[in-house]
Amino acid sequence: MSLSADVPVAPPRVNLRALGLLALLAVAVLVVPVIASPYVIEAILLPFLALSLAGLGLNLLTGYGGQVSLGSAAFMAVGAFAAYNFQLRLGVSLPLAIVLAAATAAAIGVVFGLPSLRLRGFYLAVSTLAAQFFVQWALTKFSWFSNDSASGVVAAPRLTVASLDLDAPQGRYLFALTLVVGITFLVHRIVGSRAGVNLIAVRDDETAAKVIGVPVLRTKLVAFAISSAIIGVAGVIWAYAYLRTVEPAGFNLDRSFQVLFIIIIGGLATIRGAFLGAALIVVFPLLLARTSSFAFEGLVDAGVLKLVERVVLGLVIILFLIAEPNGLSAILGRATARLRAVLRRG
């Protein structure tokens, strides 16, 4: 089943775009940590980075691969709990724990990806819910995973890499940023590779792909593995850097939907889509709260605000699907094209 057949492909302007990205990266590394307040880092940048990465992972599977998953949060949870337990029980360093956590999420992703070899479309989408519910159940039921803590909520270990202490907001931000930038580059390479082409081929016409010799089964399982690994690392960032606690509660079905919404709004089968979508998803509730407290001066209570947020979010999803199925990424693409045209003329 094809999710988005009409992904716009901009003509390659590698140098210009690469320059822009480098500038953006320089700002993110050098300027942001200096000027951003702890509030901005903790309430906006950290969840933004974690969710961007989760969206990136899901976009690989769903946007590029056409395999819809409703269980992203489960793999975030696997990543977070695996990293925690590897550190706790084997005493491994944080970087190694992250690699092992990614591997664990990949392995579990492959297990829950197995049905994709036989199921398609909605049957597959529904079967990914099994991952969501099973993982959440297992992590809640077996207290071993949370080191037998009575509440099921454990504090994340201090963030240290080698002798570097990253526990302050700036440190956590740089930790998350490093992971996100590194993995984004990897995804960029994957998408541009022949394996990435295979992934799109399987999405666009699975039967044709099979008949002409694209290794469909392997392509799907690899997609599940890589996607789950990336989402697992997103879970580590979420728990270690953002929440600073490891707990199953936050990795629920709503989180899975949130990640899916991120790539719908941002743009399926694009890398920047995950970032744009995550930015909107993170910033929008804060804006809504600000606006309402400004306009109604605290007359609207938090519960009502949550409901309004839900309604508006739902409407935004529907609106994007109807009016701009290629998401914010396409809007940005048009805007930059227009800007370029203006610059050229002027």
């Binding site: 089943m1 719908i264 739902g314 529907i318």
Partner: peptide, 14 residues
């Protein structure tokens, strides 16, 4: 069909 499904997901929120 998957696009429609996602729309109904949004709809359920609304």
């Amino acid at each position: 069909p998957m696009t429609l499904f996602m729309a109904t997901l949004g709809l359920s929120y609304v």
